[in-house]
């Protein structure tokens, strides 16, 4: 290759590199700016949220929003409810899901595959299609406006069964076979062999379930009526009750930050498991 040619290519690739980083930087700003504005506005007095020109940084940091929110709203109750729901739902989903997945992937009996197909088929059905009969049943059982309704709603989904079964299929059958030779029962094999091996899958499922339950809005919005029973997502909507004339901007932004921070921390800590969980369920869904 001639010298001029090499030089031209290196200039071309340098321009390409600048364009590449420029494009990525622009995308990153687009993705992060709303979060930045959210945090910055949560530290401003209400009348400083909208200014001309835009102030991206607070002039004076008003930390009191983070103190007031606990007394001026039901935030403490909402956080507590959300935490209870997320933990209980995750635990139930992990336990019943992994247990059922063992039945589906390791024990052969008539009707098993049809049953599993039934599970998978419901993943495609949107919740809003069957929320009405479900609501009528919960109402008949007297569960409306209790946390039980949300637990029942979320804990027995097909998703956990599906994710765990996908993972169990990758564990060689010989391991269970050797457990059987050692005299373990099926329950013993599940507990002593499969559970310890499936820790990564359980981590993925737990994180995804926790985040889903934490962020769920429609279910709690439909079932929880008393402010003391709200989750944080339903509670946040209270601040927005009057979208244009609201003077509670500070608390609204502060509440939003409080609802996002736990998820951000969990995501940072368990990023790998999130991505693996999505790769196993997303691609085969």
């Amino acid at each position: 290759m001639s010298r001029a040619g090499r030089k031209r290519r290196s200039i071309g690739s340098r321009i390409g590199l600048v364009a590449l980083y420029g494009g990525l930087a622009a995308a990153a700003v687009f993705l992060l700016l709303p979060f930045f504005w959210m945090i910055s506005s949560s530290l401003k007095p209400d009348n400083q949220v909208f200014t001309v020109p835009v102030r991206w940084f607070p002039e004076v940091f008003k930390w009191s929003n983070y103190v007031d929110i606990w007394t001026k709203s039901g935030m403490a109750d909402w956080l507590k409810n959300t935490m209870i729901l997320s933990v209980v739902v995750t635990a139930l989903q992990v336990f019943t899901g992994s247990f059922a997945a063992y039945g589906f992937s390791r024990i052969r009996f008539p009707g098993r595959d049809v049953l599993f197909l039934g599970y998978i088929a419901t993943i495609a059905v949107p919740w809003q299609a069957y929320m009405i009969p479900q609501y009528k049943m919960m109402a008949a059982a007297g569960l409306v406006d209790t946390l039980w309704s949300i637990i029942l709603l979320q804990a027995f989904g097909a998703f956990g069964v599906f994710l765990m079964k996908q993972f169990y299929e990758t564990i060689p059958e010989e391991l269970s076979e050797s457990g059987r030779l050692d005299g373990l029962s099926e329950y013993g094999i599940y507990r002593r062999i499969m559970l310890p091996l499936s820790v990564p899958a359980i981590a993925s499922l737990s994180l995804l379930m926790f985040v889903t339950t934490w962020n769920d809005f429609l279910g709690p919005r439909l079932y929880l009526r008393t402010p003391a029973h709200f989750t944080i997502q339903v509670g946040l909507k209270v601040f927005q009750a009057d979208p244009q004339g609201s003077s509670m901007y500070g608390l609204m932004f502060t509440g939003s930050v409080l609802s996002v921070v736990p998820i951000a921390l969990i995501f940072m800590a368990g990023q790998r498991y999130f991505i693996e969980g999505i790769a196993t369920t997303g691609m085969k869904g």
Binding site: F99, G103, R108, F109, A129, P133, Q134, F156, G157
Partner: peptide
């Protein structure tokens, strides 16, 4: 086979009962 069926269902039941009552039945009733 009878044993396996029982064993299989004992694994599936805890999830399936909740799933049937809260998802399958509402879908059919819809």
């Amino acid at each position: 086979r009878w044993h396996n069926t029982l064993r299989g269902w004992s694994f599936i039941a805890p999830n399936f009962i909740g799933f049937a009552v809260l998802t399958l039945v509402p879908i059919v009733v819809l």
